[in-house]
Amino acid sequence: MANEWEWELQAEKKWFQYGLVELWRCRGLLQSFVRKELTAGYQQTIMGVFWLVIQPLLTTLFYFLVFSKIVKVSTDGAPPLLFYMSGALLWGYFSDCFTSTMYSFLHNAHIFNKVYFPRLIVPLSMVITHSVRTGIQFILFLIIYVNYWIFDDAVHPSSYIWLMPFMLFFTALLGLGLGMIVAVFMAKYRDLEQLMNFMLRLFMFVTPVVYPASIVPEKYKVLFWCNPLTPVIETFRLGFLHGGSVDSIYIFTGMASSLLVFFIGLTLFKFREIKVMDTI
């Protein structure tokens, strides 16, 4: 009899069981989740999807006023508008991925308590949603960029531009990985919610969002470039704005550490995805 069973459930679970086949079977659900996230958020708003482009525009304008006009931080010779916009865009992508996935368990407890589906669907749908949003914002960036390029001749793309898809991908991986790690612990320790929002704000200042990496003093340079987001933003600016420089070793360390964080997050998430519901 025993060999006729198709599946088993028990307390002990092996590491590195990612359930990828099951996840693939649920791709339709993932699609529906993404559609829900994308459409439901803008119901009954006057400006609808325009909020997507208004947000980065306002942020850019604000950075421009404060850091370019008041504090007068260098932009490595790049047009300030494009400089701040690239920073805001990439930082926004990372922090959106991170903050939305870290609430995976907390905000979906009512669903997770009532029905089973691969829990990974939730963080993945968040990241895909934010990728779509960032994609739309990126189009806005390109429109402004092309204006500068053709009409002002102020910027020129460099060959680093081809690294961009990878850079964006690894940014998402980093946000997702960190988010999944925090999600698991935050289900039990709510303190993390406060701590993470606070840390995120501080983290922005050690990332070259509103200033170029070139103004960082030599003795902090190695530490500064260990931040996986630093090579991402710098490569982006190098590719589009032709300013600054990136040591290729840091591109690899950035990618490697993002990948590492992602796998730690994935493993932890899969290992605890069901158990965590007893403690929430």
């Binding site: 006729e4 459930l9 997770f112 089973y116």
Partner: peptide, 19 residues
């Protein structure tokens, strides 16, 4: 329904399950 894990013991099953 796989929402919660047992502390000990096993559930053997066959077929799709929905709750």
């Amino acid at each position: 329904s796989r929402i919660s894990l047992p502390t000990s013991g096993t559930i053997h099953g066959r077929g799709r399950i929905a709750s």
